Simulated assay, not measured.
Amino acid sequence: MRKIIFAVVMLLISVDLFAAHGRTASAVPTQLILARSEGVMVLGAFGNPAACETTNSNIINVDRVWVPRSHAEYETIYSTLLAAMMASKKVNFYIHSCTTVPWFGGDMAEYNQMTVGDVRIFKD
C-alpha cells in the first residue's frame, strides 16, 4: 500500500514539474495593447517560459504576456505596468499557462498567460 501511495505522490509531483509555467525574463514593457474589454497584451523582451506555440509563422507570440481582465488583480497589475513603462523599469511575470487570444491571431497562436501569480517591478 505504501508503494502505491508513493507512486501516486511521485506522479503528481512529476506532472507539476513538467507543466508549462515559469517566470519570464525581466524586461521593460515596450508596449501595452488593450484588447477591447478582454485584457492587456504586454510586449517586451520577456521570452517564452511556457513554450507557447504558433501555427502561423507570421504571428509573433514570444516576448508577449497576456493578462486577462478576469484576473483578480487586473487593475493593480495594469497600473503597475503603466508605471513601469513610463519609468523604464523592468518587470517580470509568473506564467501559468498558454492561451489563445481572439484579438491576437485567434486559434493560430498561443501566448504566455498570467492567470494567478505575480508581477514584479525592479528598481534598477
Rank of each mutant, 00 (worst) to 15 (best):
M1G: 12
M1H: 10
K3R: 12
I4P: 02
I5Y: 13
A7Q: 12
V8S: 13
L12A: 13
L12R: 08
I13V: 15
V15P: 06
D16T: 15
L17W: 14
A20Q: 12
H21K: 15
R23P: 02
R23D: 05
R23M: 06
V28R: 03
T30C: 05
L32K: 00
L34C: 09
A35P: 03
A35Y: 10
S37H: 09
G39C: 09
V40Y: 04
V40E: 03
V40M: 05
L43A: 10
L43M: 11
A45Q: 13
F46W: 01
P49R: 01
E53Q: 14
E53V: 12
T54Q: 03
T54R: 09
T55Q: 10
N56Q: 13
I59E: 00
I59P: 01
I59F: 10
I60C: 08
N61M: 06
W66G: 07
V67A: 00
P68H: 04
S70Y: 04
A72N: 07
Y74G: 08
T80A: 11
T80H: 05
T80P: 00
L82P: 03
A87I: 03
S88L: 10
S88K: 14
K89Y: 01
K90V: 07
N92P: 08
N92R: 08
F93N: 00
I95Q: 02
I95L: 01
H96L: 10
C98H: 03
C98T: 06
T99S: 15
T100S: 14
V101L: 06
P102K: 10
W103H: 12
G105P: 07
G106V: 11
M108N: 08
M108R: 06
N112G: 02
N112V: 07
Q113C: 11
T115H: 00
V116M: 12
V116E: 13
G117V: 06
G117L: 05
D118R: 05
K123F: 02
